Simulated scan of single mutants.
Amino acid sequence: MAYTYEYPHPAVTTDIVIFTVEDGALKVLLIKRGMEPFKGKWALPGGFIKMDESLEECALRELSEEAGIEGIYLEQLYSFGSVDRDPRERVISVAYYALIPAGSVELKAGTDADDAAWFKVDELPKLSFDHSEIIKVARERLAAKMDYSTVGLKLMPQEFTLSYLQDVYEKATDKPRDKRNFRKWIFSLNVIEATGKKYASGPHRPAMLYRVIAPEKVENIR
């Protein structure tokens, strides 16, 4: 298929921000670039869109190829188009983001990525391109969404305690929550139920384990 244009056109990429809460901290997935520009530097998974795929198909493909992650739900975040954001050429990036439970995927670097790893969002290495800005926007969107929605349940494992759930919300939003009010709010949504099992940790009284019972009520990220 031939394309002829009177004026130059920018290239289009997708970049993907994947958040999890692990070891008491909000973390983001990064890959180590295996090619120039910024070879050996850390960046978000992503790449150029092919002529025969949609934006979301591109994001899912790049996530699979560069980090070994498949089958997750992505939401479009924002478009980034600063003129000098990519040293190769004029590039516009459409960013996506998602939430996954800690330990739910096995990272496996491939194609043009030399490594893939989780980093605390407050302790990021120097990043390639404008990926620090993309992560900042994604974190702000996540914090705002978690203040009024059930999206935080996407970070939950199959079973969890209420204390763990509250801790995840606090780490993701960087804001403390009143224990009584938080539990009153989460129970009012009718999206979790007790499993009948308990979790014992140290000398404390065993805590009840819960699970999500209405996934269709758990809001998507947008």
Rank of each mutant, 00 (worst) to 15 (best):
F129V: 04
F129A: 06
D130I: 13
S132N: 07
E133I: 12
E133P: 04
I135W: 01
K136I: 09
K136W: 06
A138K: 06
A138S: 11
R141M: 09
A144F: 15
A144G: 02
K145M: 01
M146E: 00
M146F: 11
D147I: 10
D147P: 00
Y148D: 12
Y148K: 09
Y148H: 08
S149H: 02
S149R: 01
S149W: 04
S149L: 04
T150Q: 03
V151H: 00
G152Q: 01
G152F: 14
G152L: 06
L153T: 03
K154A: 11
L155S: 09
L155T: 02
M156P: 03
M156A: 15
M156G: 00
Q158W: 04
E159P: 02
E159M: 03
E159A: 02
E159R: 09
E159N: 00
F160D: 00
L162W: 05
S163M: 14
S163C: 11
Y164K: 07
L165E: 07
L165H: 05
V168D: 08
V168Y: 14
E170V: 06
E170A: 06
E170W: 06
E170G: 03
K171F: 01
K171I: 10
A172Q: 09
A172S: 12
A172L: 01
A172R: 11
A172C: 01
T173Y: 02
T173H: 04
D174V: 08
D174G: 13
K175V: 05
K175T: 12
P176A: 04
P176T: 10
P176I: 09
P176C: 04
P176Y: 11
D178V: 14
K179G: 02
